[in-house]
Design a protein around this nucleic acid. Structure first.
Lengths: 207, 207, 207, 207
DNA sequence: GTCTAATCGAGACGGTACGTCTCGTCTTCAC
DNA sequence: GTGAAGACGAGACGTACCGTCTCGATTAGAC
């Protein structure tokens, strides 16, 4: 994830341990200080690394935090519970539990905010964080269509639009619940959300 | 929105024009510089005001930006198109068009990010921005229930939970579409979103 | 000596105490650390002053040290012992005792070295340090000519050249003895030097 | 002049060409950048040599510059013009012409300044630069005494003191004229200086 | 002809200081 | 008492060098 060495050939190679130490230190500092009080000098000191070493690998705070937060999403897995609703509930709960960690809360929205003015940063976020999540949506939808729980969509454009829509609805709702409304996305909420997502508002609650 | 004068009695009264000039300058600076490069000294200079004057009225960058951005949401109105779907589409489009403005894009997510570590700021955002939007949801739901488009919910706790859920789904989806996916929330997307919201994923598209 | 305030009008005036504290701290640091290890951050800390305050007044290390060292030469006075030789011996001893102080030893040659590439610095040294010393030469020569100890020089150009020459010989010899040869310019040495200066090498020693 | 190889036995021998290239690069950098902006990394790059190679041979900037500047003084020769005044004028003009070269102006005073806090450096300067010049004074004085132009000094201590004094006066005056007064030590000045040195201030000018 | 050990270039490393910037406060003077 | 102006202490910024280190690739003599 960090910048590569320029030529790649001669000279002393970059320490691989430093990368890991820096990312861990970044998450630690996010927890303790939050995004706005996090300084690269402090991160370097926590990692036992010189500032220059950090700047050689990342071009700034934004890029560093994206990489540090992205690793949190590595643990996302699509469960296979046998029915679509349970699968959705499972993955949404995982997502919510990641967003519940302070290093994610502090960092994620901040880099998204910065990305509104920095296309390279937006692309980095997309590659590091968003695409992984979208893959889960794709996989879940395919599995549900195979089971007959969702209607098939033969038109690939239409299918892509639907995946994007589902992704924005799911991720957006969880993020908004967690960070804006600042309420826990707990099991009860996830159950309600899944019902609306699958059946819509106009259906009766299934007591 | 800014802090009130302490005693309120004698001496020269505060310039009312200064408040407006400062908020306008803040939005201008947000457009040009974005959140992270915006400085209060710069805002004061744009507004033709001393830094002291600014700090007397707002306690910091976060509070100032919340107030500056909140004014953008004053124009949100619930249309009355006669049917729930059209009402939703109308208000979502309005919301999307506000989020399309650079002063909102840069500022909104940034203050939300900051608010994860600052309860007072979160409360300010809730009062200035979120409650107004939630009011629209409440009003629209009531109207739809009167029309019979939505099932009634006699239990007030259950009703409040539903309003919160709808709000998180609608606002979250639009924000995610606009800022994270960085795609326009245009009419086509809004129509698809409204269909899912009302009918759920399991229903067949209404070709 | 430090830079003046730009407009000179409104706003908080610069602290006069800060100037004195900074110059004193500079001399202290010169004694402890020497020129090359002296840092402006350290000087600011010793003076109980922010780095910005220091940089607002001086444009860099060179200018600051010139001013700090220049104050040491304020105490130079031309004695009036009744005869030229004694007057010269007196003033040279004073000069030597200043050059014996570590804050002068460390700083003076360093700024002279820097001034070889910086005309503005050279001019600052001339105004702050050199002219004062040259004034003593002028005064002493006039007094000696009045006493008949030195031949009169009616041609003003020739007179100016002679003053410059004397100045370079006296100051150069003391500086070279003190800093390059690193031997003390004590009374015995000063006596020998004065004899050569007045009578030349070809004369016999006056035992 | 550079450090010797440690053991001296087997393994690849040090490149002799590198020494010369480094010293030449040092003088080049002194001319272009001056002492304070000269960096060892830059010198190494100019010499086409790795920083390691440079540090293996010299322990720091001071030592390197002393050696680089010392080579400039190799060309100093005592002329034999038949009379003391002409000999002095000749050697002083040579000295002045060396001090007129930018690589000497920038470097010489700087290392002298550093040497006030570094006895090892002072000793290196003495061995590399000062002793050579003092030898010329010794030689010239012996020649002048043989010719009867200077009085003999049978006491060796007294003789040594006189040599030191002459050396400080001559070298100090030229250095001060060149670097502090920043005026050229041209023929006219040298003639005036020599007259004062030999005959003293109290003698009448020999029109 | 190996072997072998010090050399070479390149460049990353932990440090430290740089000079600039912004912060939020304080001090002065004019209205 | 407010307002513009601007100095103040504080501290992070990103860069530049420092002098050291770790690499892989030469080299010259010793075997």
């Amino acid at each position: 994830m960090p910048n590569r060495s320029p030529a790649g050939r001669s000279g002393r190679p970059r320490s691989a341990a430093a990368d890991a130490a820096i990312l861990a230190a970044t998450r630690e500092a996010l927890v303790e200080l939050g995004w706005s009080k996090l300084t690269l000098g402090d991160v370097a000191a926590r990692a036992g690394v010189a500032k220059t070493t950090l700047y050689r690998r990342w071009s700034g705070k934004n890029e560093l935090v994206v990489d540090a937060v992205a690793e949190l999403f590595d643990e996302l897995r699509l469960p296979d519970c046998g029915c679509l609703a349970a699968d959705i509930e499972g993955v949404v709960l995982q997502f919510a539990s990641i967003l519940d960690r302070p290093e994610a809360r502090s960092g994620l929205m901040a880099v998204v905010a910065e990305s509104t003015r920095d296309p390279a940063l937006r692309e980095r976020i997309r590659r590091s964080i968003v695409e992984r999540q979208k893959g889960l949506v794709l996989e879940g939808r395919a599995r549900a269509q195979a089971r007959g729980e969702l209607p098939p969509q033969p038109d690939p454009d239409e299918a892509a639009r639907t995946v994007d829509l589902i992704f924005d609805v799911v991720a957006g709702a969880v993020v908004h619940r967690t960070l804006v409304s600042a309420e826990p996305a707990d099991e009860a909420w996830v159950r309600g959300f899944t019902r609306v997502l699958l059946s819509g508002l106009t259906s009766r609650p299934a007591e």
